[in-house]
């Protein structure tokens, strides 16, 4: 059905994009690769270390390996928890959002507000909000008798970061789902009415299939963002208590800047990056499969 012409002059169209992103991407990556295979005794003396950093990293028996492993699973668990809450919640709220009238504009602005706040401010807001002395959230939870303490209880810290992420990013799922829903022509709903379909049938047979593409994008973006989360936990819990909320990015930062352990940090960066590449590739394949199945 789609008959795109082959036109290699199209490369001219993508050259600007290529140039900009290459500059921002390849050179830094090369630097990281460089560091990941060298060791330093400080002050610019490097010598070749081969793949030693990588072997240490991926071996849970070493301290660095164990630490990496922990951070990795911690982050994956976090991503999963956030996705399981945000995607259904986002879709449900998009279904409830107003379609007509003055309420649409106001709703969109309010919904989008959490996403428009610089991430350190988000951290700051919740830093205060979770305190039991001056914050509504903290006071309310302690008020109903929970042992809530963000800085000292690991469970509190974990749960808080999840709540923050849900508060912060469900709007992205809502906006994408809402836009996807609005793109469905009215005729589909009309036909479903004529066919006597129930509300659930309309959701499963019309709305959900037509939301496939935006949902793949939403899930991919959300997974990546939760996987890379840095600022909010850094500001609110500092990675603690202990290492309860030390996710991969925070750990990486600590190793690289804190301990000036460039080799380890670089290796970790690359493995981290490779994981994101793999997930990306999986989603990309899903997306192109969806694309292909939509054609004749």
């Amino acid at each position: 059905m789609i008959d795109k012409p082959v036109n290699n002059r199209a490369w001219f169209f993508v050259l600007p994009v290529l140039g900009v992103v290459l500059f921002s991407s390849i050179i830094p990556v090369m630097t990281v690769v460089n560091y990941s295979v060298q060791d330093t005794m400080g002050a610019n003396s490097f010598f070749w270390n081969g793949d030693q950093w990588f072997r240490d990293l991926l071996n849970p028996a070493t301290t660095i390996g164990a630490r990496f492993n922990d951070a990795l699973f911690r982050t994956l668990g976090f991503s999963l928890a956030c996705l399981l809450i945000e995607v259904p919640l986002g879709i449900a709220l998009a279904l409830c959002a107003p379609r007509k009238g003055w309420a649409v504009g106001i709703s969109l602005v309010i919904i989008a507000l959490p996403m428009l706040i610089p991430w350190n401010v988000v951290g700051t807001i919740w830093q205060i909000f979770t305190r039991e002395d001056i914050g509504l959230f903290g006071a309310a939870l302690v008020g109903i008798g929970l042992h809530y303490n963000v800085t000292q209880e690991p469970i509190s810290a974990w749960m808080t970061i999840v709540v923050i992420d849900v508060w912060h990013w469900t709007p992205l799922v809502i906006l994408l789902s809402y836009a996807g829903l609005r793109a469905i022509p009215d005729a589909y709903y009309q036909a479903a009415r004529i066919d006597g379909a129930s509300r659930w049938a309309v959701f499963f047979n019309i709305e959900l299939p037509k939301l496939q593409k935006v949902l793949v994008i939403a899930v991919l973006l959300r997974f990546m963002q939760t996987f890379m989360i840095y600022t909010e936990p850094f500001v609110v819990t500092g990675g603690g208590p202990g290492s309860a909320t030390t996710f991969l990015s925070i750990d990486l930062d600590k190793i690289a800047l804190g301990q000036v352990d460039l080799g380890n940090a670089a290796a970790m960066s690359l493995v981290y990056y490779l994981i994101t590449l793999t997930v990306c590739w999986i989603f990309f394949t899903i997306m192109t499969q969806l694309e292909r199945r939509g054609d004749v």
Partner: peptide
């Protein structure tokens, strides 16, 4: 590149 973790790129 959309998925590039900023933490990886900060130092380079």
């Amino acid at each position: 590149n959309l998925m590039a973790p900023a933490a990886v790129f900060a130092m380079p």
